[in-house]
Design a protein around this nucleic acid. Structure first.
Lengths: 349, 349
DNA sequence: TTGTATGCGTTATCAC
DNA sequence: GTGATAACGCATACAA
């Protein structure tokens, strides 16, 4: 609910923006005709259409979306709630979402709350008030009120970066399979003792799932994972740097480390370089690749590559189909790809 | 203009969302009273207020923003057009903008076009149709039609990441001063021959200004800049990697390289490490710091630090002041700070 | 093909 | 303090 305190920029400005009626007057037709000229050009005669269009052009007419939304009961706007937006790979995803929605005339209304506001149901409410036709969410880990509100307002929605949910359609990749690829690769190289640099799992289902997938795969391969070899930290270059320093300080006898993302891994590699630990001669490092610079660290990182942009694009397609009333598109888990690079090698000794 | 082809999700759904009238009926009051209960609680008697609020709660009432925008002639929405969003430091800036606007109840309507759509006046038109009360732009390098439309619709606007413009208020930092700090630092270390890894200047005023500032400072210090020592490339880790390889291949006798941002610099450092060039023993590297991981590369980068988030926050303040009808806030160029780290050192030999 | 009339859900201006 | 009532600007069903 917007505050009532603010004062309007031009409360009672004499010259307001041109309306349909203004255009109609100038063109010498009725308002209805102008409306049709703009939205169903083929319903008009060539002559009046060009006359109306010229008038609209001359007045610099821009439709009033609020009035249109009110009349049509739809806004051609899609809301997205993406917390912790500024420090992540999400912008890429969101841009892809935006591009896909734009193909059918939809505009993205982005809610990019800071962490603390991340799960505030008021965010969705704000979006609904804005009249969004559909909503894209990050993950399925939402307050029940969110799904209730979505259902009450009959708004199609999709959960991005999520595998499955009883609540509705999800777009994501198979985290467990991705982690398993990483672990299998390391196991194949002979590594038995593996460390993990995990993203912070508090209040973050995605980080939790990623960590679970890794530990499960490690167990499946009969490898060892000392809890002292798992460092959990916020995502980021700096955090990866510190986390690796922490891991080194603990002197756990791991021969390989898996990082939950390439920001972390980049920082970790820097810490290793600074500490004089040779990669992969003394320690192998592998990582999930969220941000596409894994290939350009030194040494280049072995990663599982995740199609981030594709999540946004696919999420857009899911929503568009729902908005059209079409059957939902094929929506499989997106495949993650193992890319072996120089940062992993055989066990030392 | 949205396409007319799409069909509504629930064209004539029997149970539509609760409206003011519904709440009024349930509470046994008039619609006007409900409106007041929601937006000016103090104008009502304690009794009716609680009754109305309870009714609204029970019906899960959410205001219709389109109707409100139509009646109030304002939407409490601010538009932002930020091209090339996915691969940059802009998300940080946008999140700060969003946070600042949220303090006064405004929502951000983000237009994040790909490069090719970046200067399309249709983007602004879409935002205006959506009824935004104000607009944040990236840079002053906009088609004239943009400023004309903004003026015609009397929409306050601000240009982010921009120093000065006759068109309106700008928020940015002093690129030339920042570059000068970098060059002065290198000159002080004895470097005479300097190379530059620039962002792509085609169609990018910010990259151009950054490059100009650097070359001017280099000239001022009487240093040498061979044109062969300037490599221009898209921003990104991968691009920095390739650009540095290119620079090395050219065998220009530079002793220091300045990178236009830390993504580029990170890639460049990786290329140097891979090529066996010691930093800074054989080559010094310094950089603009857009993304805050300069401290964690190996070696850590000497940078000028740019307060990216502050741009968004300040831009938000400028807009809010204009929306309030207040005088514009003090809006000085944001200061850039030189941070000397291990990647720069004296001239070899 | 075009004009007319009505409704969309709020806010705001009056009366009471 | 509260209830009618008139905009707000557009889309659309229906009439012409």
């Amino acid at each position: 609910m917007p505050p009532r305190s603010a004062t309007a920029p031009d409360p009672a400005d004499a010259s307001r923006a041109a309306s349909l009626a203004d255009v109609a007057a100038l063109a010498g037709v009725s308002a209805g005709t102008v409306s049709r000229a703009l939205t169903r050009p083929d319903m008009l005669s060539e002559a009046t259409r060009t006359r109306v269009l010229a008038a609209a052009e001359r007045l610099g007419y821009v439709a009033n979306g609020a009035a249109r939304a009110l009349a049509m009961r739809r806004s051609f706007t899609v809301g997205a709630i993406v917390p912790r937006f500024g420090r992540s790979s999400f912008p890429t995803m969101v841009q892809a979402l935006e591009a896909t929605l734009a193909t059918e005339g939809y505009t993205l209304l982005l809610s990019a709350p800071e962490r603390t506001r991340g799960h505030d149901p008021a965010l969705l409410r704000a979006l609904l008030e804005r009249g969004v036709d559909a909503v894209a969410l990050l993950g399925a880990d939402q307050p029940p009120a969110v799904f209730a509100a979505l259902a009450a307002h009959r708004r199609p929605f999709v959960m991005m970066w999520e595998e499955h949910s009883a609540e509705g359609p999800c777009v994501g990749f198979d985290e467990a399979a991705a982690g398993a690829q990483l672990v299998a690769h390391l196991a194949g190289l002979g590594h038995r003792r593996i460390g993990i640099l995990s993203g912070s799992t508090v209040d973050n289902e995605r980080a939790q799932r990623r960590l679970r997938g890794l530990t499960a795969a490690i167990a499946r391969h009969g490898l060892q994972l000392h809890h002292a070899a798992v460092v959990e930290t916020e995502t980021g270059f700096a955090q990866g740097f510190a986390a690796m320093q922490e891991l080194l300080a603990r002197r756990t006898p791991v021969t390989a480390v898996v990082c939950a993302n390439d920001y972390l891994a980049g920082g970790a590699l820097s810490a290793l370089a600074q500490a004089g630990v040779a990669v992969p001669a003394q320690l192998s490092v592998a990582s999930f690749n969220d941000n596409d610079f894994a290939a350009f660290t030194h040494p280049p990182l072995t990663t599982v590559h995740l199609p981030i942009e594709e999540i946004g694009a696919q999420a857009g397609r899911v929503l568009l189909a729902a908005l059209r009333g079409d059957a939902p598109p094929d929506n499989p888990l997106l495949p993650a790809t193992l890319v072996v690079r120089a940062s992993t090698g055989p066990v030392p000794g």
